[in-house]
Nucleic acid binder design. Structure first.
Lengths: 342, 342
DNA sequence: TTGGGTCATTAAATCGGTTCAATTAGAGAA
DNA sequence: TTCTCTAATTGAACCGATTTAATGACCCAA
């Protein structure tokens, strides 16, 4: 079953390629009767003109950029996406999005698909698993394909717009320590995220700069999904005596924090009186929980805008531009889910 | 500033196109020294090979489908997207997504971009504004481009996977009426959404099938955004006497319902004791509100899967397939935000 | 010196459309 | 009947890469 081309249609309809092309493009230079005839043949053969071939000749430009995020259902990424769209649209670019679902293979596949579809450049939230393979990024670099990363990737020099996770968490933990908390734990996110590692680091740093002593039990493996967080939190408290409870939990992100808070409610542990909870990301929905979440806000829209700006500058420059690395600062937002002890 | 092509690189490097092509594709048939020379020229000229030209020849197939949704930040659409991805991936297809932001122009632009980028077919949540223009859909039909709509669009015969909104709302309202509620209002969504119209219809139908009498004041224009809903709800209750309060509010969707509930809390109106609230869509985050929301659940993932199934069947068929129209039923989920009066 | 083999490079064909100058058909005018 | 003009159609060139058979250069063995 070979591919039907415009030649097949032309032959069958007894006309030339040019005439068929005119019909496809709704030119009014075609006599109605032949037009109908050709349309009929197109239907009969189920002819689908190949878009990429159409574009090659007329050079028509559509200015589309790509965005590869990790999770379509997490507001963190969709907020960034909004920022990307905003800037891109203002410059006359369209944005298409895809989610790698935190899967490295998908990221590779998409980076290839995008670079091969006349999508002018791509913003990538990279899946970094240990020393994960970055060949695909090198390939992009080789062909001067413009891209911007949303996290640092070890081993490659590339444009990055990142969040200063370390500093952010450090500040939050410091706030707790200065406020008299001593039993603080960090509910860590998924292993492979570089965010997870950076946040753990930040947590440790805060301790090393205080009089308190860090212990590895303070890092609890919880993950980032809501259900997952709920379950793991229930487990965590299950056979713990009340006097061993932490007085504060620093969460990996807001979604996790939500799961944690629901679990604490189930366990009849009062927030913030018995335990303080700090989130991360400041997603919209954390406002609606009855105890407003103290959290760390990253300027997500701004990150998206900045990434888009760098990308489009690269796309539009005729020379190769110097690599940019932008680190965004976060804002610590104190709301009702934390309480200081002194 | 004309476009740099492989010919420019070849000329500059003093080799043939073929050799440059070999370098681009990392073939090991090139002598390291010429390879380096060519790479240097590529950098110097900032040469970016045109993806679509690469594909034309080697016919490499990547099986990508598109999805055009209306709002990237509303879980309703991202849940559908998950379903689409799930089915598509199982069949070896990748999915790329874009959001029209409920803007008709964007929808047109994207449907064109997709059909022109070797994206095999597209699922569209159509923006329908009154008798909005549907030329772009006719164009797609003309070139036999496979697509599936997520709402009915008047004036065109096309594959549709839709929700039976009318029936859904009717059922919910009937539940309230049978339960003794008489002062029921509907907080309607954005005008241009066909969902809005269908839900209003469903509301009216429920009344016409009861002994109660419908009055147009029962339809309140609120919109669907969270902030918007909050504000409009506050306004709605502002100069209303307590005895004029409705006893039940049927909301357009969960996001609106969330805004409404927060407003009611602000107004110190108890849910469900003073007013019952019903949502729509059953988005994840409505679970975390302390009063669990009674809502209508649409099988969103299932909708996505089904749409993807129809689309891919069309893509893979060598003949034109008969048009399918699937209407999904909803499930009425009774939780804590409603209370019957008898 | 010749022949065989390997490695590197080239030139031409190709992918599937679009474009446009040239041609043809047919109608109406002179 | 011939000429003009317009409308419809054709065919060849083109877009920017990839592919592959053919060629060239070089080395080594016979």
């Amino acid at each position: 079953m070979k591919k039907i081309t415009i030649v097949d249609v032309a032959k069958r309809a007894g006309v030339s390629k040019g005439t068929v092309s005119a019909v496809i493009n709704a030119k009014n230079s075609v006599k109605p009767s032949t037009r109908d005839e050709i349309l009929a043949v197109m239907k009969e053969l189920n002819f689908r003109p190949k878009g990429i071939a159409r574009k090659l000749k007329n050079g028509e430009v559509d200015n589309t950029i790509g965005l590869i995020i990790k999770d379509l259902n997490y507001p963190f990424y969709t907020s960034i996406a909004s920022g990307v769209k905003e800037y891109a649209n203002s410059k006359g670019y369209s944005v298409i999005i895809t989610s790698s679902e935190d899967n490295h293979e998908s990221e590779i596949r998409f980076s290839h698909i995008f670079s091969t579809k006349d999508i002018k450049g791509t913003i990538i939230a990279p899946v970094v698993e240990g020393t994960s393979e970055i060949e695909h990024l090198f390939k992009l670099k080789m062909v001067n394909y413009p891209f911007v990363l949303l996290e640092d990737v070890r081993g490659i020099q590339a444009n990055v717009v990142a969040i200063d996770n370390l500093k952010a968490i450090k500040k939050a933990v410091k706030y707790l320590i200065d406020g008299g908390h001593t039993k603080i734990v960090h509910f860590a996110g998924p292993h492979k995220s570089s965010h997870t590692q950076e946040r753990i680091q930040g947590f440790r740093h805060a301790f090393s700069e205080s009089t308190l002593v860090f212990h590895k039990d303070m890092i609890v493996d919880i993950g980032s999904g809501y259900d997952e967080s709920f379950t793991k939190t229930m487990e965590y408290f299950k056979d713990k005596k009340k006097e061993d409870y932490p007085t504060a939990i620093v969460c990996f992100n807001d979604q996790q924090a939500l799961g944690v808070m629901i679990a604490l409610k189930e366990l009849k542990i009062k927030i913030p009186d018995e335990i303080s909870v700090i989130g991360n990301d400041d997603i919209f929905y954390s406002q609606i929980y009855p105890v407003p979440l103290t959290t760390i806000r990253a300027p997500l829209q701004e990150i998206g805008r900045k990434a888009a700006e760098i990308l489009i500058n690269n796309i539009e420059s005729s020379q190769i531009m110097p690599i940019e690395r932008v680190v965004m600062n976060t804002e610590f937002i104190i709301r009702g889910s934390t309480k200081l002890l002194k």
